[in-house]
Structure formats: structure tokens, C-alpha cells
Nucleic acid binder design. Structure first.
Lengths: 160, 160
DNA sequence: CATAACGTGTGCATCATGCACACGATTGAC
DNA sequence: GTCAATCGTGTGCATGATGCACACGTTATG
């Protein structure tokens, strides 16, 4: 009966997700990555920096929603990133309430260094993966995440 | 050239992972889950509760390593779980330094309720998935996580 | 217009976090 | 067998992050 197998697969899948979350949330993992990239940056800040790089230009409130933190907390952290010269603030042309955050060229250098470091660190993992398995994991995980996002906000999700 | 496609897939895969982490770390997601399960519990605590349920019996230091937090922090949080009657502490028979943490029947009821709630909430996502895609995602994500864990600690990983 | 809703940021109080440290138990070196 | 080093555990303490209440200017709504 495949319904039973599907239940087992879903439980098993969730276990893997929990393991993945735990693994990625380990502080020492970020430390290794930052060291490999030659970057000195607080962990909370570098998560935000990546978020800004991905969704720029972006306001504080939207960034806070994506990060799941209070907007006042994010406001202060973005201010720190601006002080460090990694992020630039500027008023939005469309909505003058908004002070958009954007990556500076210095900030871009940091995120590029992080990407390159991660690529080097994870290269050994994929050496033994076939093309097919890699492409399939890419496709299926993307679909999984998109489905979860869609379920969360079927109509008002800007990523949809 | 497939080497190029592999690079693209790896970048793309990492994006999906980042999205997944962000999604799972949203505080409101835990709130929804806790509400659906009818459970009142702090988020930090319920993460630990799941960890204890999975690896019990487990000491504070090992649990702290898995959670990536300081052992003193975990010690206090486990004490709270014990106060709530969700976790039991007992001296280890093998090593009298260790005070093992175990799930109580009450704690088990909570984790079961959380599992059931998550199952209900995510059921719509999988309705449109074929058996093959579901099983493949299960298999490949498990392998991905295992490979990352092995890379991290090739010889001394207890999960290996 | 007038009123509500929104984006942003500051003051403030609280709580989690991690370090220094201590204590009992275990291991290992000799 | 003895003693020092290591380990698991937990407490005191100080720092820092976090979120709430609030305020100000801007935009949307009627």
C-alpha cells in the first residue's frame, strides 16, 4: 500500500529537514564559513546582509518579516551594517516613508567571499553525486520550499 | 557542459536551503504549529524537547552540542522542561556524573501532538506530489544531510 | 480633508546567553 | 594505588539582544 509508504516518507523527510536546520544553525558552522571567507562579522548581521543582497532594495519592515524578527531589532542591525559600510540606506523614490537598504560594493565583496567560501567547503560533498541526483535534489527541494511558501500565503506572497 | 550545470544547480540548491531555513525559523510558524497542536510552550523549549525525544537518554552537554548552544543555557532550559513535567532527569547508571534527560509520558503527548499537527498542516502540500517525487526527495535530502554531517565530523560523528 | 494605516526609529525593561567558576565523578599516567 | 587532568553539571554575574510602547512623518482610504 503506497499510502503507508508515503506517510513513512513524510516523517522521514521531516527528520531530515530538522537535521538540516539544526546543522545550519550551529554557531560553529558560521564561524568556519566566516573564517574561510576571511570575514569578520557578527552572525546575526551576516544573515541580514545575505537577505538584503537577495531582495534589495528592501525596507526594514519587509526585511524584518522575512527574518521573523521585530522590525525595531532589524532596524538597529541594519544601522550597524550601514556603519560598517556594507549596506547603504536611501529614501525610496516610490514611497518616501521607506528608507531602502542596498548592498554597497564593499558589502558585495563580502557576500561574494562568503559564496566562494561555501562553495569550496561543500565541494567534497558533491564530488560523488551523479548529475541526475544533484539535479533532482535541486528540483525537488525547490518545489518543496515553494509549496510550503505558497501554502503559507497563497495570495499575498511576493515570491509566488 | 555538465560541469557548468552542476555549478548552477549547487547555487540554486543553496538558495532553496536558505529559503527553507528562513521559513522554518519564522517565529509565527512555530506559533501556528503550537496553536494547531493545542500546546502552550516557549519556542526555545520545544526545540529542545524534540531533541530530547529523539536522542534520549541524553546529557546536557551532548544536547548542548547538538543544539549549538552553551551547555549552561541548555542546563537552565532543560530544568524548565523538568519543572513543566515534560522531561525527567535521572542519574545515569553508566556514568554518575551524567543526569540523563528523558521524555515523560506528558512530554511524549506534547511531541505526538506536535507531530500530528505538523502532519495535518503540511498534508495539502503533498497531495499533488507523485510517489516517485516524494520518495526521491526523501532519499536525496537524507543523503545530502548525511553527507554534510559526515564532512563535518568524518570519524567521531555518533550518527554515522 | 480627515482619519486610519503604514514605515521608521528611540527609550526602556526584560530575558536569554555565555563566561568564569566551583564541585563531584571519572579517567589515565606513573 | 595515588594523584592530576579531564569531564558533566550547575550557579553567579554581566553583557547584549530582543520586543513592546511610543512618537513622527508619509501614504492610503472614505
Amino acid at each position: 500500500m503506497t499510502a503507508r509508504r508515503r506517510l513513512v516518507a513524510r516523517r522521514h523527510l521531516h527528520e531530515s529537514v530538522v537535521d538540516l536546520i539544526a546543522l545550519m544553525n550551529l554557531p560553529q558552522r558560521d564561524d568556519v564559513l566566516l573564517a574561510e571567507a576571511g570575514v569578520t562579522l557578527d552572525r546575526a548581521l551576516f544573515t541580514l546582509l545575505v537577505g538584503i543582497e537577495r531582495f534589495q532594495p528592501i525596507g526594514v519592515v519587509e526585511l524584518a518579516d522575512r527574518a521573523g524578527r521585530d522590525h525595531t531589532t532589524v532596524s538597529r542591525q541594519v544601522a550597524k551594517l550601514a556603519e560598517l559600510g556594507l549596506v547603504e540606506r536611501r529614501p525610496s523614490a516610490a514611497d518616501r516613508r521607506v528608507r531602502e537598504a542596498l548592498i554597497t560594493s564593499e558589502g558585495r565583496r563580502v557576500t561574494d567571499a562568503l559564496d566562494a567560501a561555501r562553495h569550496r567547503l561543500t565541494a567534497p560533498v558533491f564530488e560523488r553525486w551523479t548529475d541526475r541526483d544533484l539535479f533532482e535534489l535541486d528540483r525537488l527541494l525547490r518545489r518543496y520550499v515553494d509549496d510550503l511558501l505558497t501554502m503559507r500565503a497563497p495570495e499575498d506572497d511576493p515570491d509566488a
